[in-house]
Design a protein around this nucleic acid. Structure first.
Lengths: 227, 227
DNA sequence: AGGCTAATGACAGCCTCTGACAGTTGACAA
DNA sequence: TTGTCAACTGTCAGAGGCTGTCATTAGCCT
């Protein structure tokens, strides 16, 4: 189970953060709790899984679970949180010349891979994607998901306002564009989760397609189908 | 405590649905629970109010509360539900020629009064508006609010799809427009709830203003401020 | 008036989450 | 190596949301 060096040379690690046995154990317990939780959630359902079940599957007490995660819900969204932060970084990295909606669309397009990597470091990507469908079909989880999405949008709206040199408290447009972007994302997730093919690639393609349709859907004429 | 006539002439009531003493009592208990709940929520906070508190304020047992409302949350949103159904009716009543976004905007504009009336029949409108601010500042309530908004959007999207003669499962545009509309509504609510003037009139004006800015915010140039 | 049924209250119990206390184990210095 | 300190953990007790059960009450109907 040991991973670090033979005896105990803490100065060999880079100046970054130097794991330490205790830290390693903690991280392993956390990841184990996370995996146990997501597996149970996807197999038997979120509501049907008690915290005691998760704790037992990870061989810790219920009390310990709550020391790692403030709530059952927080455990459920821990991985999503990782993914989202990657997207935020990508938005930050966009060149300032682009129109806001374009910047968001392109940031998303180029962060899919980074997101996949981040997820894989904690739980199998496939498990995460399967759990995403559980979110959509579980009212309590969907509610939490939407609230978290709103918070994320607020954060991104500030970034957009900064890019455009606008005061977010005086000009509503940054929030409006981001809200529109988020709305399309949610519609996409919903449709994706109802499909048979619920892989990452399918979600990526759907998202790209729908984002391209925002402007025409709002302004253009509605004559003629366009699956 | 008695309210009805002296002895018992049930045939005096209109043919509509003939209340009956039992029905009346039920409705009064429900309204009392609703008022007690909203008052406690606004005075001391949602999380700080227990179901026992509400039941006690309405002089019923906790068990009875749960027979009227499936959850504390359901009680919190009961009045909002009334308001929303009025809006849906207004959308239905819009002439078929209008562009979807216009239909939504106009339906909203003309349903404010009806909404006010519907609310007043259960609790004071002012109490409802005050509670709306509690929703925005209480994570658990905000989450529930957003989930409910999503369900409402799905319903409206079907209406829009019907108006335009589109298959909602083959054309994403109805959902997209409605999602955009809903997104703007939520941004408006949020900004409104953070203001000092949180009356109904202020919300109505803010909504009208923001909805007019959707299209320019997405397509137009972003040069020049426009509070 | 008397029977029928809906509505209520009074437990008992499950689940999420928290505080308190004590036991265990890694980290670090003597 | 050993002892001390701090972090991590388990156990216990309890609050609050929510549900099932059962006896009692109260409206309704003949």
């Amino acid at each position: 189970m040991k991973v670090a060096g033979t005896s105990a040379p803490p100065e060999t690690a880079p100046a970054a953060s130097r794991p330490g046995l205790r830290e390693l154990k903690k991280q392993r317990t956390r990841d184990l709790l996370l995996r146990s939780a997501l597996e149970l959630f996807t197999e038997r359902g979120y509501e049907e899984t008690t915290v005691d079940d998760i704790a037992e599957a990870a061989d810790v007490s219920q009390r310990t679970f709550f020391r790692y995660f403030a709530s059952k819900e927080e455990a459920a969204f821990f991985v999503s949180r990782l993914a989202e932060s990657r997207f935020v970084e990508a938005v930050h990295a966009r060149p300032p010349g682009e129109a806001p909606l374009d910047a968001l669309r392109l940031a998303l397009a180029e962060s899919w891979d980074t997101i996949g990597e981040a997820v894989e470091q904690v739980v199998p990507l496939e498990l995460h994607m399967r759990f995403y469908r559980v979110i959509e079909s579980t009212p309590a989880l969907l509610a939490a998901h939407l609230r978290r999405a709103t918070e994320l949008e607020e954060e991104i709206a500030r970034v957009v306002a900064g890019r455009e040199g606008l005061d977010i408290d005086r000009d509503p447009r940054p929030r409006v564009v981001v809200a529109v972007f988020g709305a399309v994302m949610r519609v996409t997730e919903r449709i994706w989760s109802a499909r048979d093919d619920a892989g990452l690639a399918a979600l990526r393609d759907l998202t790209a397609t729908y984002l391209d349709q925002v402007t025409p859907a709002l302004t253009g004429d509605w004559r003629g189908p366009e699956t």
